Amino acid sequence: MNIMEVDTVRLDEKKKAVVIIDQTRLPGQIEFLELKNAEEIWRAIYLLQVRGAPAIGVCAALGLYVLAEQIKEEDYEAFWARLKKVSDYLNSSRPTAVNLSWALERMERCLEIYHFNGGEDDRAGWLFCLHEEALKIYAEDIAVCRRLGEYGMSLIRDGDGILTHCNAGKLAAVRYGTATAPIYVGMEAGNHYRVFCDETRPLLQGARLTAFELQAAGVDTTLICDNMSASVMKRGWVDAVFVGCDRVAANGDTANKIGTSVLAAVARQYKIPVYVVAPTSTIDMRTASGDDIVIEERKPEEVTEMWYSERMAPEGIKVYNPAFDVTDHSLIAGIVTEYGIARAPYAESFRDIFARKEACGGDLLVQN
């Protein structure tokens, strides 16, 4: 099976389940998981079986609908209380990716608006509302990533060398991805690129996921260790750096997979532009700067034991294992969104971006 031919996250209507590709099994095995209860959905997000900000958001939205189907209360207040409880539980799975809370809040708000605006005030009506909103979030993700690719493609030329970090590919979204969307959309237009993938320690998302999907798509792909980026840049092999992110602060600081800030600093040294590709759902105007972003810390075993047949660090050694770091806005040449490319000063650019979004009612599906 070619991984490019299936959606990373989808809803199985008959089984009332969220179906995901288990990314912890890649690249050796393509396995699908059917998530039917709150614990399974929470664990899938926490254990990175589904990962990437857009994919997490879609999984949460579809998952909340699946769990709402299991709520039997016919009284709205009781139904709402149960739904809010399970939504809060899912939201606790990972703190950094804003798409998780964004999708859950959107589902909650949709139900509240439906109820208070006189929608069918019964369980069937509430479920219909949640079902339609979840599928809209799913469809929007595909449309948004496609548009990200179109804007991002304008920043590169046929034959360019591109360096990317972690996995912001189709495995991090339903289709296309964010940072890889310009590559895939460019290929559809007949362009060819040379892509360098950082392996991305300690969880190796670049080696296991990005290299895997780019190769499956027929992209000229070279895998490098994280500490080799300066070497390929110095040789003139890289024309642009494209990365995704899990949260963008109002000043343009971005939180992305650990190591991104190092990559951006090295790129500055070699005068190579760094572009962050992020849907507007990832821009958190409530967060003033990167200093205010909560950074998830993960288990030390990911550094000392995972991927090794034997432990590769001394017993008792202290381990610091942040999942993300913050790249200062001064190191970013542009933030690619589905409504255009934001550039410094970012607070001003974001106002323009959100004005464009508001002008079309925030519905990219209508635009398309």
Rank of each mutant, 00 (worst) to 15 (best):
I3V: 15
E5G: 02
E5L: 14
R10V: 05
L11D: 02
D12N: 12
E13L: 11
K15R: 14
A17Y: 01
V19N: 07
I20S: 01
I21W: 00
I21E: 02
T24K: 02
R25Y: 14
P27I: 07
G28E: 15
I30L: 11
I41W: 04
W42I: 04
R43N: 14
A44P: 02
I45R: 05
L47N: 11
L47F: 11
Q49G: 06
V50H: 00
A53W: 02
A55F: 06
I56A: 02
V58Y: 06
L62P: 02
L67P: 00
K72L: 13
K72C: 12
E73H: 10
D75R: 09
Y76V: 00
R82W: 04
Y89Q: 07
Y89R: 03
L90C: 00
N91A: 12
S92M: 08
S92C: 05
S92Q: 10
P95M: 04
N99F: 01
W102D: 07
L104D: 08
R106I: 06
E108C: 05
C110S: 15
Y114P: 04
F116E: 14
N117K: 13
G119A: 13
D121N: 13
L127E: 01
F128P: 00
L130Q: 08
H131N: 14
L135D: 10
Y138K: 13
A139P: 07
D141K: 05
I142R: 01
I142Y: 07
L155E: 08
G161I: 10
T164M: 10
T164I: 11
H165Y: 13
H165T: 11
A168Y: 02
L171G: 04
A173G: 05
A173C: 04
A181V: 07
V185H: 09
V185R: 10
E188Q: 14
N191I: 05
H192E: 14
H192W: 00
R194H: 14
F196N: 04
E199D: 03
L203W: 04
R208L: 13
T210F: 03
A211Y: 07
D220P: 09
I224N: 00
C225E: 13
M228D: 11
M228R: 09
S231Y: 15
S231L: 15
V232E: 11
D239H: 12
A240W: 08
F242P: 00
V243S: 03
C245I: 09
G252F: 11
I258C: 08
S261A: 15
V262E: 14
L263T: 09
Y270T: 08
K271P: 09
I272E: 06
V274I: 12
Y275R: 05
P279R: 06
R286C: 15
I295M: 04
E297F: 15
E302I: 08
V303S: 03
V303F: 00
Y308P: 08
E315T: 11
I317Y: 12
A323N: 00
A323R: 04
D328E: 12
S330M: 15
I335K: 02
T337N: 06
Y339D: 09
G340H: 12
I341K: 01
A344W: 07
P345E: 08
E348A: 14
S349N: 06
S349P: 07
R351I: 14
R351F: 13
A355D: 08
K357H: 11
A359T: 00
C360D: 13
C360R: 05
